[in-house]
Computed example of a mutant assay.
Amino acid sequence: MSTAELGLPRVPAKGYPQDVVDRLEPDADAVIARYPVKRSALLPLLHLVQAEEGFVSGDGIRYCAEKLGLSTAEVTGVATFYSMYKRRQVGDFHVGVCTNTLCAVLGGDEIFAELKAHLGVGNDERTAVSPEGRSLTLEHIECNAACDFAPMMTVNWEFFDNMTPDKAKALVDDLLAGRPVVATRGPAVCGFRETERILAGFEDRREDAVHGGGSAGPESLVGLTIAKQRGEQA
């Protein structure tokens, strides 16, 4: 089976155009400078190239390999191991629906089925561009450690808790229409490429980001509250 059939990025004979390289170099060098061994910068550097194109392309793999003194095979192995690195173009927003056990039985499977029908896409597929110029990629995701709030969804890895099919459809409609969307326990959602730049380690400039970021909710703290009431300590 070919790399194309497997969905793996094809590493081309040539890398990024010079103007892209010139744009990436200062940020890539800043990322690499954080690590005493430069190959340790591979994960954030992959997020940086994903911020450039909206996925990790063959050009991005070659760029990372050349910057870090690695083979393209080594970089490809990492880029295809971690699910946060995408091998095809992601829309302006990545929408994930947890279909792991607890979320699934509490409605995650129904949410995912209704979103596929509502958007006209399958798993890991991108919608057409809306009249407002937005698109999104829909994907079923494994557990994101938010079982207290099942069924849950993510938009660019920000949590949306206690979802229902109707709430999910309203959420994606807002995204495609360009209306502001705020995470349940986090900041306002930004675009996928901006999110990737933040994950690469650059400043999160959203005004409410300091107060958000997936903080614990009441459901997560019930056990601690009861323990305090009883005067119990671990």
Rank of each mutant, 00 (worst) to 15 (best):
T184H: 05
M84R: 14
R205V: 08
K228A: 15
S57F: 07
S220W: 03
D19P: 00
F55R: 07
M152W: 02
Y63C: 01
T154R: 04
T137W: 03
N100A: 10
L8G: 02
A73W: 04
A145S: 14
A51T: 08
F159N: 12
L199A: 02
E110Q: 15
D208Y: 04
D22A: 12
V222I: 15
G186Q: 04
D124T: 01
I61L: 13
L68E: 05
K228W: 08
S71V: 03
V78I: 15
K86S: 05
E110N: 10
V129H: 01
I32P: 09
V97L: 12
A73Y: 02
Q229P: 00
G213V: 00
P131D: 07
P131C: 01
R39P: 02
G120E: 07
P17W: 03
D173T: 15
P9G: 04
T154C: 08
L171Q: 06
V222H: 07
H118W: 13
L43W: 06
V37G: 01
F112W: 04
P187D: 13
V210K: 09
E232N: 11
D92W: 07
C190G: 07
L176G: 05
Q229M: 13
Y82H: 13
E219Y: 08
L106K: 15
G60L: 07
F159P: 14
E114N: 03
D19K: 06
K67H: 02
